[in-house]
Design a binder for these strands. Structure first.
Lengths: 189, 189
DNA sequence: AGCTTGACATTCTAAATTAGAAGGTACACC
DNA sequence: GGTGTACCTTCTAATTTAGAATGTCAAGCT
């Protein structure tokens, strides 16, 4: 009630990063990409746009342009306060778009072979993502909060993977499973 | 390559519903809300807009307006084909926005008490969502594909819940946990 | 019957968001 | 000293969103 200007979660995240160190838009984009991108999608243009908005609000301050118009932004006292006000709020409801679940939902319109292919590919992708998260947890382990978020990524990927395996094992979905894993190792691509 | 007009996943979903029965925009919105809304967000306006687009493309046909401008749409042969072409594609990558994870990620800027509150609330919400999915699985159990999608919802919620419980148990995150579960069963609301 | 209320159904509009093209700079290497 | 590539920001058109605006019918009340 006391604060009239509510910032959105993306802007708030930028403030969050900036409260550790001054950064340019480019660096912020990289920071986002390397951390929260998996559960909070931000495009590069949005980083720059929000940065300008935040500057207008007085929450960040642009330093002098460096080498390639490289402009470092630093958080202001007002910015720290805005961030503090944002983060105590109840987090909003998640918004997800999972095309895979759409495909499975309408799966009865899909040739079983094709579905099997799709699931196989998702299994590969999921395993890869899981590995990524595990590597990141090694690297970023310092902050326990960050560590827990990465842990969620790991838990989630594992859940996804075993669900996918459950799909392949469901006879109502994969009826024509005649040949088992024996011949599997032959085919590669 | 053979098809020039690619439809988006939302439009495709509408075709998916319409392949079972003709429906009005309102009914489609309700169908979406009662099934895929959890993993594919669609607003009402988008339903109507896509319906018009699909009509322009010849994938659906509008029937005569009924009682309250209520206009039933039915899928055409071309529509069935477009849907068939859409569903065999590789599902795109998921896009998620989870404010909760943002909050935890920046959790060190948050008073521990407040974080505990937030987690508690999320635990409640998650338990409720889990119940919902379980009820839905009872009701919609007919189609095994739908059943599996609901199963994913259940698995996911369970993962979320145990992760949240892990958070409350992490001393690096919840340092001031003095009183344990003993008094918990008393409070009901 | 006439009136009121609320649920039903669609359309419209302003704002937010996105993807990615466009424009420009500096550094490293030849 | 010239050239290519990676760096860094800005811009624009298209898409998407939330929800206000508009209107209709049905049921219950007097």
């Amino acid at each position: 009630m006391s604060s009239s200007s509510e910032i959105n979660a993306t802007a708030a995240s930028l403030l969050g990063f900036l409260s550790d160190a001054s950064m340019t838009g480019w660096e912020l984009d990289a920071a986002v990409e390397g951390s929260i991108a998996n559960f909070w999608n931000v495009t590069r243009s949005q980083v720059y746009r929000e940065l300008r908005t935040l500057a207008d609000l007085g929450y960040v301050e642009a330093g002098d342009a460096g080498p390639r118009d490289r402009r470092p932004y630093s958080i202001t006292e007002a910015g720290r306060q805005a961030f503090a006000e944002w983060i105590v709020q109840n987090p909003g409801s998640p918004i997800v778009r999972m095309p895979l679940l759409l495909t499975v939902f309408f799966g009865r319109h899909l040739p079983p072979d094709r579905l099997a292919e799709i699931i196989e590919k998702e299994l590969d992708g999921g395993a890869e993502a899981l590995r990524q998260f595990e590597v990141m947890q090694q690297a970023y382990g310092a902050d326990p909060f960050v560590r827990q978020v990465l842990q969620f990524g790991i838990d989630y990927q594992k859940t996804l993977l075993s669900w996918l395996e459950g799909l392949t094992a469901d006879p109502a979905i994969m009826p024509a499973e005649s040949e088992k894993a024996s011949t599997r190792s032959n085919r590669e691509d």
